[in-house]
């Protein structure tokens, strides 16, 4: 997490007897994102009894707990304590790491590249240029298995999802949908448009954490020719700095 502004106040919603949803709803989405991720880090470090963990996304945080050990009421009080701590101390600063992702675009590696180009009314090369143009902030880890969820490339139009989701998308698939971008760490069904594939191994079930990046880290794509795929295949993704 980059050094950040003061967190915005949150609203806390009951979500059953074993979870709470915490929502930051200021008009500034960066502030919201910073708030829920800082709060998740605080909860994680505090390690309260009975609190299983926190799942931060964009403007919301799911806090899961064991209702035998603690309760929604106690966890709510604990979240508010965390917010006061963050108000007082500021959010912890963390230097983001950088990840570079080699991608083979199109063809068998990116079966939806042409469809996306058609939808955006741009040449395929321009889609690749836009996708490799910027550095993406990893906003949160999503399903399946620690997928890095990112704000998408600067395409003119949001990308529609596939009408018939695929039953199986390979690990390493590089996809876009709506205004979002992602890499698939594991084989899974998927309805996003697959525009390329990285030969790198993203998920390592023998390690904790399973994926090398965290929310707040930066990720960049660069194009490689199809011939290089097998040379890099199986190499593990690591931070470049």
């Amino acid at each position: 997490m980059a050094a950040t502004s003061t967190p915005t106040p949150v609203r806390i919603f009951e979500s059953g007897d074993a979870a709470l949803r915490v929502v930051a709803d200021s008009p500034d989405r960066e502030v919201n994102w910073n708030t829920v991720h800082s709060l998740a880090a605080w909860l994680d470090a505090a390690g309260a009894d009975g609190v299983h963990g926190a799942v931060p996304t964009y403007d919301s945080l799911l806090v899961e707990f064991d209702p035998h050990v603690t309760s929604a009421r106690q966890v709510r009080a604990f979240v508010l304590l965390g917010m006061r701590q963050l108000d007082y101390l500021g959010a912890p600063a963390r230097t983001p790491r950088q990840f570079d992702i080699p991608v083979v675009y199109g063809g068998e590696y990116g079966p939806d590249l042409e469809r996306v180009a058609e939808h955006e009314q741009l040449p395929v090369e321009e889609i690749i240029a836009l996708h490799t143009a910027k550095s993406y902030v990893i906003r949160c880890l999503g399903a399946p298995a620690g997928s890095p969820m990112m704000d998408g490339p600067d395409f003119p139009l949001p990308v529609p999802r596939l009408k018939d989701p695929r039953l199986s998308v390979p690990a390493g698939a590089v996809s876009v949908a709506g205004r979002q971008a992602v890499i698939a760490p594991a084989v899974a069904p998927g309805g996003w448009c697959v525009i390329g594939q990285t030969p790198l191994t993203v998920l390592n079930p023998a390690k904790e954490p399973l994926v090398p990046y965290q929310p707040g880290d930066l990720l960049r794509f660069h194009q490689i020719p199809a011939e290089e795929f097998s040379l890099l295949a199986g190499r593990e993704l690591e931070a470049t700095q």
Partner: peptide, 11 residues
């Protein structure tokens, strides 16, 4: 797997 959800893995 109670530590799963933070990494995007179901419990």
């Amino acid at each position: 797997r109670f530590r799963g959800p933070r990494y995007g893995l179901p419990v």
